[in-house]
Design a protein around this nucleic acid. Structure first.
Lengths: 146, 146
DNA sequence: ACGATGCCTTAGAATAGTTCTAATTCTCAG
DNA sequence: CTGAGAATTAGAACTATTCTAAGGCATCGT
């Protein structure tokens, strides 16, 4: 399956430059790997995927690149329960649904109206910069899904 | 400030018995420590606090007891970002506010109405057993707080 | 073009948090 | 009192992540 990894470097290079950082092959490939398969991979999983394109990369670099991307607001780091951090290139406001049977994680879009309602529970004096919503449960085989 | 730690064993022993488990001194003290200071301590912090009452307890036992309490639904395990798991004896529906400056974590009550609204974002086929909401930000010195 | 400067990558060591293992102790039923 | 199962313990093992020190590479001023 052909995959166009052509358009992404623009915004990536831009964002990096904004922070005074360079667009290196390692950073580009790590980012492209996240975009290519949005299944919330761990650093180790990213490492394996990146190695097929850039076999000399080290795990430390993968951690460095992921951290850099998070700093540049290109990627979100997510932590469900104990266990490795997972990475998500979806920047729109969304919740995560963690399927306890399969271990899979799905993005759930958050309408601004709900987000607003949630933020409204904060008493005066609480100044939230971000909010994270995590559901846990199971997904049904969707009787007649589509 | 005097603190009555007398009433808890009832429900604790009950819950444990329900699961076919015994109410040991270790379990009781770990639980009482969580109730006494609800600052979302880590396992290590619980260990230190428990040791002042039961100096021979081991860290492994603290982990075992905490896990047991979570299984019995007496305590919630919470994971903010990477870092150690924190434990919370508040069983009512609530969100967590993580103050990035002080590192402190505050409970925020969740009105059923908001909880409902949040659950409503799930498309058909998603069956959530629980939802966790985590705010990150800072708390203001509450100009005229009380 | 050339060297200096500083960013980036790398491998491996180190660390933090948690779980595992095997041995011992405790509890309770018979 | 004895045996079976449950719980505790210390320490080893393990997993995920960060740190460290060395070397490589790109860019800038001259």
């Amino acid at each position: 399956m052909p995959l166009a990894i052509t358009s992404l470097p623009e915004s990536l290079a831009q964002r990096l430059a904004d922070s005074g950082l360079r667009a290196t092959p390692q950073r580009e490939i790590v980012y492209s790997v996240l975009l290519a398969k949005r299944d919330h991979p761990t650093a180790d999983e990213v490492y394996v995927r990146v190695k097929s394109e850039l076999p000399t990369i080290s795990l430390a670099t993968v951690y460095n690149c992921l951290e850099t991307l998070v700093q540049c607001d290109l990627v979100r780091a997510v932590n469900f329960e104990r266990g490795p951090t997972r990475y998500c290139p979806n920047l729109r406001p969304h919740a995560h649904f963690h399927d306890e049977q399969t271990g899979a994680t799905h993005d759930i879009d958050l309408p601004p109206e709900v987000l607003e309602k949630v933020n409204a529970v904060l008493p005066a004096g609480y100044d939230a910069k971000s909010v994270e919503i995590i559901f846990r449960g199971k997904t049904n085989p969707s009787p007649a899904a589509f």
